[in-house]
Computed example of a mutant assay.
Amino acid sequence: MFADLSPADQAKYVAAKRAVELVEDGMKLGLGTGSTAAWMVRCLAQRVKAEGLRIQGVPTSTRTADLARELGLEVVTLDQAGHLDITIDGTDEFDSALNLIKGGGGALLQEKIVASASDRMIVIADFDKHVPQLGKFPLPVEVLGFGLASSRDHIARLLADHGLAGCDITTRKQGDAPFVTDEGNFILDLHLAQIPDAPALAIALNQVPGVVENGLFIDICDRVILGASDGRIEEHVRP
């Protein structure tokens, strides 16, 4: 199967397979969202089937829940699980401190809640996701539909205060309509190019009325596993 995959999927598969090797019998797991996380769910299902592992998975989106159930994994809610051993998820960017930008798949709220409820968060990615400074990938901010224009104006002023004036703020679309999250909210994508102080911006964004959560994951990720199409693996651990 590996040889039949595209180079991008080969890299995702390699990282996912390594992460799933860290799963032990009896664990409760957070199951991430996105194309890389989907490979993790597939690899996990293979281990469960081959080894008879007893695990429970808490998905971070309806897409992940549907895939996990289709592959025969036991799916529970976070309230049912109560506590998670590991969350395995992808990322859109990460820096040397293992701070992340997530939310390209539109599931940042559930992803952050699930990751924060876990003893460890393991991120799987390809080598291109490692950046010297966060911000090249647009930063997603989940907002209420009520007062959307007001929230956008507040965010624009906040960005100016953080030395990021003039950055584009776009409402994420799905076709011609706004993209709607699993919680019924909208997403504003902040095209920043760079984020000089990601921890400070993460705190400030969540003070804006109408903002539900932002895609900066600060001091949450414990390990990043990078995969390459040639089978190479590299791991980064938070200091």
Rank of each mutant, 00 (worst) to 15 (best):
G90Q: 03
L5S: 03
N214Q: 10
S116W: 11
L216S: 01
D79T: 09
A97M: 11
L71V: 08
T171R: 11
S61W: 13
D89F: 13
V211P: 10
I218C: 05
V123Y: 06
T62F: 14
G82F: 10
F137G: 00
L226A: 12
V180L: 10
D4I: 05
S150A: 14
E142S: 04
Y13H: 13
E111Y: 08
D222P: 03
I101S: 02
L139F: 05
H191A: 00
S229K: 13
L216Q: 03
I203H: 13
D89Y: 10
G26M: 09
G105T: 02
L44E: 07
A228S: 14
I218N: 03
H162Y: 15
A204I: 04
A81I: 06
L188C: 04
D119V: 05
C221G: 08
L100T: 04
G184R: 11
S118K: 06
L201E: 03
D85S: 06
S116I: 00
G103C: 10
A38H: 12
H154N: 11
A160D: 14
P199W: 07
L190P: 05
D9M: 15
K28S: 12
V114W: 14
K28L: 10
A204N: 07
R223Q: 15
R157G: 04
Q56I: 01
V143R: 04
D4R: 13
D66T: 14
Q10W: 08
G231D: 12
I101Y: 08
E235F: 02
F137K: 05
L144S: 03
D85V: 02
A200Y: 05
A115Q: 12
A198C: 06
K28P: 01
P178L: 04
F186Q: 05
I169P: 04
A11D: 08
I220S: 04
G184C: 09
G82Q: 11
Q46F: 09
D161M: 07
A202I: 00
L144M: 14
K112R: 13
A177I: 03
Q133Y: 00
L108H: 12
Q110F: 13
L164I: 08
T91H: 02
A50K: 14
A200M: 09
T64D: 07
H236D: 03
E70Y: 11
D89P: 09
P199I: 01
V180G: 07
L159W: 06
M27R: 09
R54C: 02
A117N: 14
V237R: 13
S151Q: 08
D25W: 06
H83D: 04
Q56W: 13
H83P: 00
I203G: 00
A202R: 00
S150N: 08
I113C: 01
V75N: 09
Q46T: 10
F146Q: 07
C43Q: 15
R42M: 10
T91D: 00
P196S: 00
E234C: 00
